[in-house]
Computed example of a mutant assay.
Amino acid sequence: MRGIIYFILFILVCTLSILFFAQNDQDVVLSYFIGQLDTPLAFIIVGSLLVGYFIGVISLTGRLFKLRVKLKQAQHKLGQKTKEVENLRSLPIKDDY
Rank of each mutant, 00 (worst) to 15 (best):
I18Y: 09
D25Y: 09
D96Y: 10
A74L: 11
L71Q: 09
L50C: 09
S31M: 11
Q26E: 08
P40E: 05
V69Q: 07
C14I: 01
M1P: 09
M1W: 09
I93C: 10
D96H: 08
Q26D: 10
S17E: 11
I58F: 14
Q75V: 05
Q75M: 03
L60A: 08
K66W: 06
V57C: 15
L88G: 01
I93S: 15
I5V: 08
Y97I: 08
Q80S: 14
Q26W: 08
E86R: 15
G52P: 03
G35N: 12
R63Y: 03
F21V: 12
I34M: 06
I18K: 10
V69Y: 02
K83D: 12
G62C: 03
K83C: 05
F20Y: 13
L49C: 11
T82I: 04
N87P: 01
L30I: 00
G56Y: 15
I4P: 05
I45F: 05
S31C: 10
V29I: 11
Q26M: 04
L49G: 14
F7Y: 05
K83H: 11
R68P: 00
T15I: 08
S31T: 13
Q36A: 04
T82G: 06
E84S: 00
L78Q: 14
G47K: 01
F10Q: 12
A42H: 08
C14W: 01
D25N: 11
L16K: 12
F65I: 04
K81S: 14
G3A: 13
T61P: 02
Q23F: 06
A42P: 04
T82E: 11
R2S: 09
V69F: 04
I11P: 03
A42R: 00
M1L: 09
Y97C: 03
P40D: 06
V85L: 15
R2I: 08
L88N: 07
K72C: 04
R89N: 07
F21A: 10
L60F: 09
I44K: 06
F20I: 07
I44P: 02
K70C: 00
T82R: 11
